[in-house]
Amino acid sequence: MKMDHSLPSEYSTEQNRLKIFGFWIFLGAEIALFATLFATYFTLVNRTGNGPSGHDIFELTPVLIETIVLLTSSFTIGLAINAMRLNNKKAMMGFLVITLLLGLGFLGVEIFEFTHYVEIGAGLTVSAFTSGLLTLLGTHGIHVTLGFFWDL
């Protein structure tokens, strides 16, 4: 297999370069996917039927925690890749473990949030608004879960 050492290690073979490029296109498709979900959510946001509105149910503390946790995990996985490029296996594994823990933390808070929504009467089937909200969040949650298992 031909190796090109002038590039970062994940780009060193032709097949890897193709895979990375393909993944960028996949991310393009993912943007379209989430854009559609967001469009759906914003179309339905005021259509609450007999259920609660966003104003009634949103709490900022878990949202803040989730945001900080996720952004930190993006940073630590970046550090892991940097460690990989420097051929530092130990540091890479360390950062990956931290990333995974942060991912788990996020999922934990999200599961808590979901059960809370169901408890206060904002379950999936209550209104178009709750369907849209929980599907959007749930799809993201599935992405984090899949990413977590793929990372393992």
Binding site: T40, L44, R47, T48, G49, N50, G51, L124, T125, V126, S127, A128, F129, T130, S131, G132, T135
Partner: peptide, 10 residues
């Protein structure tokens, strides 16, 4: 769910 329904905001 209630995305395309006729009631509950769909």
């Amino acid at each position: 769910t209630q995305f395309f329904t006729m009631a509950n905001g769909g």
